Simulated scan of single mutants.
Amino acid sequence: MKVRRSLMKHNLVLAAVVCVALMASACGPDVPPETTVSQKTEQFNELMKRPDIDRAAAGYEELYAKVREQVTAEVPALKWEVANPESSAACGNDFAAVNADLRKNDAEVKGLANWVAKGNLPDFQWKHVASTVGQVAGTYGFGGGEVVVDQPGNHEIVFRDQYNAELNFGTAVNTTLLLRTGCHLTAEAKKRGTPAAPPTY
């Protein structure tokens, strides 16, 4: 009987020690959970490293003009005309959080006016002229050149820069030059320097 009481007493003491330990751990100093920057802020901060959309578009327009000039110098028969006006849209999935819940976009992509020259660029000239376009684009940070189409009388190549802008040069029935920017903050958002607060309804 004494052994049993002693064992019960021992168990109660052990239980008390465990409870005290648990209480101590529960009542210890609060350690704040690890905090992370919101996706919206992360994406906005990434875009702050880039020029605003107006400055970016101005640089691309300069590139655009030099490409047309160089192509015309090599193939004088090509006469460039604007086919479609400039357009703009919200950024794609990579920066979708920046514009989430906003009435007016903080970030956007632009499609510069499309240029078309009537007539096809002959196959024997294509590689040389495409290479020239690539060289001019390279001075503006565009690399490589992805061949999209390479068939007799039908060619298309795309160059991209660090912001994922795309310069598209092709020839088929007509010869075309297209440029779409990557995602950039608007001048207003860039000047503000922080994400816009969602509207209150």
Rank of each mutant, 00 (worst) to 15 (best):
R4P: 00
L7F: 03
V13E: 04
L14W: 03
L14C: 04
V17Q: 06
V17C: 07
L22S: 09
M23S: 09
A24F: 04
S25G: 02
C27N: 12
P29T: 06
P33E: 13
T35G: 02
T36K: 13
V37H: 00
S38N: 02
S38D: 05
K40T: 14
K40R: 15
E42L: 14
E42M: 12
N45C: 05
L47P: 05
L47D: 03
M48V: 11
M48S: 08
M48K: 09
R50T: 06
P51I: 11
D52H: 15
I53G: 05
D54A: 15
A56E: 15
A56Q: 15
A57Y: 09
A57D: 11
A58H: 11
G59S: 14
E61N: 15
L63P: 12
A65Y: 12
A65D: 15
K66M: 10
K66S: 11
E69W: 06
V71G: 09
A73C: 07
E74D: 12
P76V: 11
A77H: 07
W80Q: 14
W80V: 10
W80A: 10
E81S: 13
E81H: 12
E81A: 15
E81P: 01
V82M: 13
V82R: 14
A83D: 14
P85T: 13
E86Q: 15
A89M: 14
C91D: 14
A96L: 12
D101R: 13
K104Q: 12
D106T: 12
E108S: 08
V109A: 07
K110D: 07
G111A: 13
G111L: 09
A117C: 03
A117T: 02
G119Q: 07
N120Y: 04
N120T: 12
L121N: 07
P122S: 10
D123W: 04
D123R: 08
Q125N: 12
K127I: 11
S131K: 14
T132Q: 09
T132H: 02
V133F: 07
Q135D: 10
Q135W: 02
A137H: 06
G138C: 07
T139H: 12
T139R: 12
Y140L: 05
Y140E: 09
G141N: 09
G141A: 05
G141L: 06
F142I: 04
G143R: 05
G143I: 04
G143M: 03
G144K: 08
G145R: 04
V147W: 07
V149W: 03
Q151A: 11
Q151P: 00
N154A: 03
N154Q: 06
H155T: 00
E156G: 01
F159H: 01
R160M: 05
D161P: 02
N164I: 01
N164G: 00
N164H: 02
A165G: 09
E166I: 05
E166A: 14
L167Q: 03
N168A: 01
G170H: 00
V173I: 06
N174Y: 01
N174R: 00
T175M: 01
L177D: 00
L178M: 05
L179W: 02
L179F: 04
R180Q: 08
R180I: 10
H184Q: 08
H184N: 08
E188T: 13
E188G: 04
A189H: 08
R192L: 13
R192Y: 10
G193C: 08
P198N: 07
P198M: 08
P199S: 08
Y201D: 09
